[in-house]
Design a protein around this nucleic acid. Structure first.
Length: 1059
RNA sequence: GGGCCAUUAGCUCAGACGGUUAGAGCGCAGUCCUGAUAAGACUGAGGUCCGUGGUUCGAGUCCACGAUGGCCCA
């Protein structure tokens, strides 16, 4: 016996129970150990999830993929690692802790105490990694949770030290001065990676037009345009494009130079006096906008040439301040310009800027306008909305600031990185081109950050000679330490503890402290293909698992972040790829395709989703989606998945268990061999094994969506064709495992057929539970455990099973085609019935079928029994062409024929009427001329309509035609009425609360049913489990009802039979 | 300026290898079923497959150019 299964099920409750059961029986750890001795390995390295907040549904998407492919490979027998990763160092953690503490600047952190602050950061990470672990378990994500790695761990940090030292040995590390994007609130520079990730927002800035008076040309001025007025304080040059044409224009009291294409920016009327190439302006000197500031002392202001000057915005003359802009800085180097750096770490004007000193960059615009006005340099001001970088963590507008930072040189390894990228398999395949594009354009990697909680860069810079060294391990540091080791010992290699340690400069012997900077967080994540595989301590273990066979992460951003840092570290340490294949996916949106935002109220919490839609529904929604497209996720989409896939699957299962229990079906009893079973069984087994082959292939190719969609098609066929058409086989009298109760003798062939049906459906459901277990681990295990329980060879859980293997000898392509044809013809036959308004319960005499290809007629005869049954008709006839079903009527198209033939129209008309209508229709369809009684007409000169033949209703589609006879003889009518009566009695049985298997005695009174009972009484008895059909009033206590249908009426009474 | 992606029904999306007359769900209209019922089945209406050229016996699918949208880089 199987555990009884209701058709109503609370999936969420079922999932929670499953988790409890798994834990109680230690299934996850049995699952993870199951392939311990396998000689096949499949190495997965987890991209660490940021442990800074609870996990969201978008994380659940990615984690469902990871779990899916891990489970798939596990059932295939591969030995794997199940190590989850947590990312927990860096600015993002700091910012959240700062928020908690109400801090606004780095000074607050210093005051609070760096050690305490770092401890709080670590505690935050531990807190949220615990939460995410619990959430992941609810998702059914089976990882070795006790063994999760942390990027903040000592091992991870020290492995990065090793990497950086290796970089240094290869001459890749340098300290450079550059103008970098800088967050004034966080007081730190941001690397290129961080800005491009999610850093640009639409901001309205001033578009300020300023006049720079030319020193060499009295009365003339350059008109320049800037969106960052504060940078004018540090202006030293103005750029023009050497090849563009510049115009000098009289404009009110001014004589201004602008690029010709931008003359329209001038206010009011103007008159062009002179035009020259930009190159002719190069070298002119001008008076700078803030020459009076001390910081500007001795600075020259000169026009220089630059090819990047655009004439699509501004004035074609670009204000240049090498201390406050990235390209400006590069130009400054090239032209030997003065570098004036205005801002300190917090975005406040430094000393030397007179009245500006001490003011924040965000409050100087107005005073600057006033100052320019007083000097006669102000020209105009407009609003200029554009995309501008902000701090990706705190949202503050970035400024560009001159800083000393540490970099890894990219040019020496760029080619190697690209070569490695070529070797990797990218899913989707366009990922390779995206990564290569990034690598081609990648600048040197800025790895330093002037913050507190992160990798302590192991760079020790000598206070004497200025040289630097890099410590490659804790042991090396200990060996070199000349002070502070005792203070540090026992602490993690974080600030402030590690800052105490100082070494002696190898070159000059002076003391060298660690630089204060911490590392870029992508160092932390990029090292994991070494650090988590014991690279430093157990090289054999590392060799066994490196490189990863696959990794998986969402691609927006990761091309320049995690994928990139993994590539770089693999290249530097091993000149090898760190992973063989990357499977990536896009972004999650809400149901309407809008970005999810907490503030917009359209974000979905993981817990809410899990407890309302259920995790299987969520996971199936993910699996069926094309990964490279953004997913629109919400309750409605999950509801649809549950309704269209999970519930039908469950209903088939529930149907099976219900009747298998009634029949005491025992799966261990030998059923007929598959080849001996009826067509219907052989067909669904054929489809099943084709499905197994397809799903296995799809998942091997990392195409979950095609696997899921194939499975949906299969369950649809299983539910709406196999089970529906098999139902009566399960209801046949006689119990296969029975003892002859109810006195129903059963014919041996019925028992064999029934057994075949049960065995088939059992095999299908059991295979399906294994096949889909990696995708929907909850419902599949519940099904498996119940079905497999009476079976000697069963495992404890489907998750300890082997993945099913397709038996291609059971795949019968012809049988599949026959069934497809039966389905198609049945569908069209229903359409024909529907058109004639005849319900399926009414038997009809015959169906006529025209197939598209003559070759299908052979299939049709095999499909005929199913079609007759589906359509409730007596006979099927094959017809050669539609003319047997349809009559064509050809009409002249007088609108065209009239003008063309004039008086001859009458003759044409007659000729057309006498021509063969079917041939005419053929010609028209083919676009050929119509031959009619000596006339040759264009195809559009006739109109053709079809009429159905008398007594037929026809449906036509895609080359097929199916017609049903519509004549209802008295015999057919009586048969239809018998079916209707059965239907009514069935309803009454249910209303009376009888059990499905109860036998009854049926009474009928009121007179109209005599003919029906004498003709079809046996049928009615059999269908309704009536032991007897008695004319007359039912005894008192019977369930009775007045029935009227098809012009008949009777009072029906039902009594449960004692037998 | 460069790279990548997309464009198929009102909406959301499928459409290996080029192959007869392009599919699903939702929505809409209608019918049926109620012994699989937080249901289900069926039928119908609805498409110049972004455009233009090209390759081919044959193009939604391949190529070129263009348009629109998105992402990224400069």
């Amino acid at each position: 016996m199987f555990e009884p299964v209701g058709s109503r099920v609370d999936f969420v409750k079922m999932e929670q129970d499953a988790i409890e059961w798994w834990n109680a029986h230690d299934i996850p750890s049995k699952y993870m150990r199951r392939n311990e001795d396998s000689d096949k390995r499949y190495s997965f390295i987890d991209g660490p999830i940021t442990a800074n907040n609870p996990m969201g549904v978008h994380h659940a998407w990615g984690r469902s993929y990871k779990d899916l492919f891990l489970r798939f490979r596990n059932m295939l027998g591969y030995r794997q690692r199940f190590q989850n990763g947590y990312d927990g160092q860096g600015l993002w953690i700091e910012v959240e802790v700062e928020k908690e503490l109400g801090f606004g600047s780095k000074r607050d952190i210093e005051k609070f105490g760096v050690g305490e602050f770092v401890d709080m950061c670590k505690a935050r990470v531990d807190h949220f990694s615990d939460i995410i672990t619990e959430q992941s378990k609810r998702l059914g994500y089976w990882m070795d949770w006790e063994d999760s790695y942390h990027t903040k761990s000592d091992e991870n940090n020290y492995t990065i030290w090793h990497f950086l030292k290796t970089c240094h040995e290869k001459g890749l590390i340098y300290e450079g001065t550059d103008v970098m994007p800088w967050c004034p609130r966080c007081s730190t520079g941001l690397s290129e990676h961080e800005i491009v990730t999610e850093g640009y927002v639409e901001i309205v800035h001033p578009g300020l037009f300023v006049k720079f008076p030319l020193l060499d040309r009295e009365g003339e001025a350059l008109l320049v345009w800037t969106t960052t007025p504060w940078t004018l304080s540090s202006n030293v040059a103005a750029c023009v494009h050497p090849d563009l044409t510049y115009a000098k224009a009289r404009n009110g009291d001014d004589t201004l130079w602008v690029v010709e294409a931008r003359l329209s920016t001038l206010r009011g009327d103007y008159e062009v006096i002179e035009k020259v190439k930009g190159s002719e302006l190069v070298g002119l000197r001008y008076r700078g906008p803030f020459d009076e500031l001390p910081a500007q002392d001795g600075a020259q202001h000169v026009v220089i040439a630059w090819d990047e000057v655009s004439e699509s915005e501004g004035t074609g003359i670009v204000h240049t301040a090498p201390g406050a802009g990235k390209e400006d800085f590069a130009l400054g180097k090239e032209h030997g310009l003065a570098v004036i750096a205005p801002l300190d770490e917090e975005g406040v004007f430094a000393e030397g800027f007179d009245w500006l000193s001490g003011m924040s960059v965000f409050e100087v615009n107005e005073p600057i306008y006033e100052s320019l006005k007083s000097k006669g340099m102000f020209y105009a001001l407009e609003q200029y909305p554009h995309r501008y970088p902000v701090c990706w963590r705190c949202g503050t507008e970035l400024v560009f600031r001159l800083v000393d930072e540490w970099f890894i040189r990219m040019d020496p390894i760029r080619d190697l990185l690209m070569e490695i990228t070529e070797q990797i398999e990218w899913v989707p395949s366009f990922g390779r081109a995206r990564e290569l594009d990034w690598l081609r354009n990648m600048d040197d990697w800025m790895i330093s950050k002037k913050r507190y909680y992160g990798l302590a860069l192991p760079i020790f810079k000598c206070e004497g000679c200025g040289g630097f060294e890099i410590m490659g391990s804790e042991d090396e540091l200990k060996g070199r330490a000349v002070e502070g080791w005792n203070e540090f010992e026992g602490h993690s290699p974080h600030r402030p503890w590690v800052d105490a340690v100082k070494i002696e400069c190898r070159d000059c012997g002076a003391v060298a402290p660690r630089i204060q900077d911490v590392g870029n967080p992508w160092l932390d994540a990029g090292i994991v293909s070494f650090s988590t595989l014991k690279y430093r301590h157990d090289r054999d273990y590392w060799k066994e698992w490196f490189p990863a066979d696959w990794i998986s992460e969402s691609f927006p951003g990761q091309f320049r972040n995690w994928f990139y840092s993994l590539l770089t570290m693999g290249a530097v340490l091993q000149e090898a790829p760190a992973f063989r294949l990357v499977f990536s996916y896009a972004l999650m949106r809400d149901e309407h395709g809008e970005e999810m935002h907490k503030s917009a109220g359209n974000a979905i919490w993981f817990e809410d989703a899990a407890e309302n839609m259920g995790v299987d529904a969520m996971r199936w929604t993910f699996a069926r989606h094309t990964p490279e497209n953004n997913i629109n996720f919400g309750y409605a989409t999950a509801d649809e998945v549950r309704r269209r896939f999970i519930i039908p699957l469950w209903n088939v299962y529930s149907f099976f268990v219900t009747y298998a229990n009634i029949d005491r079906f025992d799966p261990s009893v030998k059923a007929p061999a598959a080849s001996e079973r009826p067509d219907l069984d052989r067909w669904i087994l054929s489809e099943l094994h084709q499905l197994i082959a397809d799903v296995t292939a799809s998942l091997s190719r990392f195409e979950p969506e095609s696997a899921a969609r194939r499975a949906e098609e299969f369950v649809e066929s299983l539910s709406n064709w196999y089970v529906r058409r098999s139902r009566r086989r399960f209801w046949k009298s006689g119990l296969i495992g029975g003892d002859g109760a109810n006195g129903q003798a059963s014919a041996p062939e019925d028992v064999a057929d029934k057994l075949a049906a049960y065995a088939t459906l059992y095999e299908v459901l059991l295979s399906l539970s294994k096949l889909l277990a990696p995708i929907i681990p909850f419902v599949t295990d519940v099904i498996y455990r119940n079905l497999a329980a009476p079976n000697g060879g069963a495992r404890e859980s489907v998750h300890l099973e082997d993945y099913p293997v397709a038996d291609m000898s059971l795949v019968d392509e012809r049988l599949n085609e026959v069934t497809r044809l039966a389905q198609r013809v049945s569908s069209m036959g229903r359409a024909a019935r529907s058109k004639a308004g005849i319900k399926v319960r009414q038997p009809l005499e015959r169906v006529l079928v025209k197939t598209r290809a003559a070759s299908e007629r052979d299939l049709l005869s095999a499909a005929a029994p199913q079609i007759l049954d589906e359509l409730n008709v007596g006979a099927l006839e094959v017809v050669e062409d539609e003319s047997a079903l349809m009559r064509y009527a050809v009409m002249p198209n007088l609108r065209l024929l009239g003008p063309k033939y004039g008086a001859e129209v009458g003759a044409v008309r007659q000729a057309l009427a006498q021509a063969d209508a079917a041939a005419t229709a053929d010609a028209m369809r083919a676009g050929r001329a119509i031959e009619a009684g000596g006339y040759s007409l264009e195809p559009d000169e006739a109109l053709v309509t079809t009429e159905e033949r008398e007594g037929l209703s026809t449906a036509v589609d895609a080359g097929y035609a199916v017609a049903v006879s519509t004549t209802i003889t008295p015999e057919l009518l009586l048969e239809g009425q018998a079916r209707e009566l059965v239907h009514r009695i069935q309803n009454m049985r249910r209303d009376a609360g009888f059990d499905i298997a109860d036998y009854i005695t049926t009474y009928y009174a009121g007179g109209d049913l005599g003919d029906l009972v004498s003709a079809h009484g046996g049928y009615v008895k059999q269908e309704t489990l009536s032991v007897d059909l008695v004319e007359g009033d039912a005894p008192s206590g019977a369930h009775t009802a007045e029935q009227r249908f098809d012009g008949l009426s009777a009072t029906i009474g039902l009594v449960k039979s004692s037998g």
